[in-house]
Each structure stands twice: as structure tokens, then as C-alpha cells.
Write a protein that binds this DNA or RNA. Sequence first.
DNA 1: GGCAAAATGGACTGGCAAGTCCAGAAAAAG
DNA 2: CTTTTTCTGGACTTGCCAGTCCATTTTGCC
Lengths: 200, 200
Amino acid sequence: MSTLTAKGAATRQRIIEGTAAEIRENGLLDLTLDDVRARTRTSRSQLFHYFPGGKDELLLAVARLEAARVLADQQPQLGDLTSWAAWQAWRDRVVERYRNQGRHCPLNVVMSQISRTTPGAQAVVAELIHQWQAELAAGVRHMQAAGEIDPALDPDHAAAALLAGVQGGVLILLSTGRITYLEAALDTGLQQLRDSRPRA
Amino acid sequence: MSTLTAKGAATRQRIIEGTAAEIRENGLLDLTLDDVRARTRTSRSQLFHYFPGGKDELLLAVARLEAARVLADQQPQLGDLTSWAAWQAWRDRVVERYRNQGRHCPLNVVMSQISRTTPGAQAVVAELIHQWQAELAAGVRHMQAAGEIDPALDPDHAAAALLAGVQGGVLILLSTGRITYLEAALDTGLQQLRDSRPRA
DNA sequence: GGCAAAATGGACTGGCAAGTCCAGAAAAAG
DNA sequence: CTTTTTCTGGACTTGCCAGTCCATTTTGCC
């Protein structure tokens, strides 16, 4: 890619964020480049100037943006799972975030739709899942060190199960509008961790 | 709808199943009616004869088929969760099913893509989730009656959490190709149930 | 057999959306 | 200041795909 001027970089960013917003509102299924153009006030040639690979390349950029946002939205709680209160705060944060989000979860769009077609997006999703799991596992290790969680428990395994619950809870929320499943997955997952506490 | 002859019913069924197979192999994103025509050896007018509502109506029929299949594929284990061995057998069945399934999960297509646009499909998904959860909850109640699970535990809540784990595990499997998450969700979920057993 | 209803074949339309191209404006470079 | 590079506008092309239409064949029914 040729060098970008400040103006060019701003336009490029505007396109990415506008596309992300458009997807969040209306989904990916009937997203057209004209929709993007209308929202971001850009011309056709600008789109292809900044994303020579066309729609796919643009969507990949959006995927990266949204993947970063998913983790950022859980901070600082996710990075500081060092007490039961902190875990609970994280749980509340997640529930709140998805409760407020409409019917179009950008992450789910990335996972379910973009990543199947665009090989690059697959790597983005894999990396996101990996980081998310790693942060949860780090939290488990903290609690083990503090004697609050059974040291025999495999942190990565526990984190994987918890993460699967969150993903599934969100998916069901998106499909049925009911948030019960997400809450149940989080609550029973945390309960299990608490119950594992070694008796002194 | 006008009355169908035996031949007509067969053709209609052939179209639905062929479409389902096509989606399972290539996904919904670039599914065209011509693909359906090629696989099912039907003419354009046949498609619109049996599905006057066009593509949407056809996809709704596919959604119904796949929703039924998801539950059917878990039988008889899902309907007979009356011992720990049975629960384990169900768990193995689920893992095996999704391990063998390619990158295109028809249920996920229904949940993530069809149900957002077609209002009817949303009801199909809701009903599927509800039945699935009900069967799991029934299993929990069985085990409670047998004294193997803490009677204070809410069966619907536990079933919801378990189901969310399965959904999330499958979603992650589809996105990353790793089945670890599904296994972790199932294993820790079942472990939690086992651990709740009241001490005699 | 004959009539009505259903099933089938395939040409045709219309629209839409991705991607191309070139010309001109704005900005950086020297 | 002028030259080169980047940025922008918008017309144009191309191809595809859902949906329509009508003619023909097959089937059910009496």
C-alpha cells in the first residue's frame, strides 16, 4: 500500500468505522457498498482506493476493529480478575453490554459470516478467542494463588468452558431475545469456581 | 396452498433436502437458486410453484427441517438422561456429531443468518431452544429424583447453562476448528452436576 | 376417453451491486 | 512555483440472480 497522508488515513478510518456501525445496525446480509458510501460520504473510487481488495478487504478491517472492541469493552474488569467481587463485576459488565446491544452482534457477524469466507478473518477470530481465554485463565490462576480456587483445576480448561458459555449465551440471546441463558452460563460457571475452593 | 399429489410432495421434499445439503456443504452466503436447481434437478417454475414466497419461504422450510434434525440426532440419548452413564453417552454423541460435521453447521446458519431476516424462522429457533432445554431439564429432574443431583438446584437454570455451553462450543468449533471448547463446556457442566450430589 | 387441476420446462425481464476507469482537485515535496 | 503523488468524483461496464410468464406435459377424477 502506498503511503497515506493524514487526510487519507482519516478517510480510511471513517470508512471502517462507518461500515462497522452500518453492520451493527442492519447486519451484513444486505450490506452494500452503496450503504457504506451513503453513511461515510465517500465515493466509489475512495472505497477501492483504500481497500483494493474490495468488499472482502474492507470487511476484514472491520473484523479487526470489532475483535479489538470486544476485549476493550470488558476492560478493566477482564484484566483484573483477582477477587470474587472482581469476577462478579466482570460478569455484570458482560451481561450489561449484551443486554444493551441490539439484535446485530458484530462479533457474531464476524464469527458466523465473515470468517467462513475470508481466510484472514479466521485468524482474527482465532486470536480473539485465544486472548479472551488467556485472560480468563489468568484470572483463575490468580484465584488459585490466593487459595480461592482448587489448585488441581486446569485454568485453561475452566476458561474454555466459561468462554463457550458466554458465546453460546450471546448466540441464544441474539436468536431468541432472551438473556436468561447468558446469565445462567455465567452464574453457574462462576458458582462452580467458587465451590471448588479448598476447605482450610 | 393447493393440494399436492404424491409426485408433487416428493418434489417439494426433494427441493428442501437438496437445499439443506447444499447449505451444509457451501453455506448460505453464496447460495443461489440455480445451485438448488442444479442439485435437485428442478426448473425455475417448480421452485416458485412449491414455494411461492421465493427464497425466503424455501429457507424457512429448510430451517424447520434442520431444527428437527438437531434434536433427532441426539436421540435416543437426549430423551433418556436417567443415569450418569446416559449423560456421558449423550455428551459423547454431541461431541461426535459436531466433530464429524464440516465447517457449515446448518443450525448455526439458521440461528445466525436466516432467523434475523425471516420472522418465521425466529419462532422455529425459539421452539428448538426451548425443547432442547426442556429435555435437558427433564434429565436433571430424573437425577434429582434418584438422589444423584442436589434437589435445591434449579433444573431449568442448569439446563440453560449447559445448553449455552454447547451452543458456544459449537460456534467456536466452527470459527476456529478447535473442538476443545465444546468438550470443556460439556465436561465441566456435567462435572458440576455430579459434584452437587448430596452426601448421604 | 375427456376434462380439470397440478406439475414441469425454459425463455425473458428487471434490477441491483461489485468492480473499472479516467479526469480533475488537493496536498506534499523539492 | 512546479512537479509528483495522493485523493476524490462519478459515469460506465459487467454479470448475476430473484422473480415472472406462458406453453406443454402429466396426473387425478368421473
